[in-house]
């Protein structure tokens, strides 16, 4: 431990500094009374936060993002439950290949997913771009994350618990409702929160597929062109970061509670 550990510890703390540097700056500029984002700071203001509430196109983008994120969290988690249950409980041919395909978006560049969906939607399905098409794309990329979380929830579920309920006269469906669902519920909540966060933050797919209905990241990107709008974005970012941290903390809490509840132990994080 001693000296060797200390070297690593110093490095780890510097690394954390690197990871958190942008996030720490965010509130600083959000409350800085200047349209130019640079040092030295000028003075304290809350005007950028006030400007947020009166910006109608921003509010619309928030609305769009919330619609998408809520839908995605429900859809991706539902797909995640099916997949996690199937992989943890059953053995069947082609499982590896199918799971590989489902998890592929983890490594597939977002732009490829975006262009593929754009091409298929406009040229083959002849659908109009809208929030629905964004929901399709986001569900695709969020599902692997929900599967990863739900896998650990389903894995820590002792198979004999289901068999015991079945043995005591319940049907397969009531066993799912009475035993499995309550025990994996924390994992489900955690998966929903993660899917929500991913969707809320995703830019490339949303840019390609949202058509005229801009989501929040699409709106934010468009605002970078106007320097005078940047402080408002900083204020928005501050709120988003706080929201993300709250959501993640809640998600992590539920994930761990789920594992503890089912009698397991874990030191893993998300992913």
């Amino acid at each position: 431990m001693k000296s060797k550990g200390n070297g690593f510890r110093i490095y780890a703390i510097l690394y954390l500094g690197f990871l958190y540097a942008p996030i720490v700056l965010l509130p600083i500029f959000a409350f800085n009374n200047s349209t130019v984002i640079s040092f030295p700071l000028v003075g304290f203001t809350t005007q950028w936060f006030q400007a947020l509430v009166t910006d109608t196109s921003l509010l619309l983008a928030v609305r769009h993002s919330l619609i998408v994120a809520v839908s995605v969290s429900i859809l991706a988690t539902t797909f995640g439950v099916f997949a996690a249950r199937a992989t943890t409980r059953y053995k069947f041919p082609g499982k590896g290949g199918l799971m590989g395909m489902i998890m592929l978006p983890l490594v597939l560049p977002d732009i490829i997913i975006a262009v593929a969906l754009l091409g298929a939607i406009t040229n083959i399905l002849g659908m109009k771009l809208s929030l629905i098409t964004v929901i399709f794309g986001h569900t695709l990329i969020a599902t692997p994350f929900t599967i990863a979380i739900l896998n650990s929830a389903f894995q820590s579920l002792d198979r004999s618990l289901e068999e015991a309920a079945y043995d005591l006269g319940e049907t397969k469906i009531s066993t799912f409702r009475l035993i499995i669902l309550p025990l994996v519920m924390p994992g489900i909540i955690s998966a929903m929160l993660i899917a929500f966060t991913i969707s809320l933050d995703e830019y490339i797919i949303a840019a390609f597929l949202s058509g005229t209905e801009a989501t929040l990241p699409v709106y934010i990107f468009s605002q970078f062109r106007f320097p005078q709008r940047v402080p408002v974005i900083m204020a928005l970012g501050t709120i988003l970061v706080c929201l993300s941290i709250v959501l993640l903390t809640v998600a992590e809490y539920f994930r761990r509670r789920g594992i503890a509840k089912a009698g397991g132990k874990s030191s893993g994080g998300f992913l």
């Binding site: 933050d201 995703e202 934010i220 990107f221 974005i233 970012g237 988003l240 970061v241 993300s244 941290i245």
Partner: peptide, 9 residues
């Protein structure tokens, strides 16, 4: 945590 905070920002 930093990974989950707005990418663009």
């Amino acid at each position: 945590i930093p990974f989950w905070t707005s990418y663009l920002i």
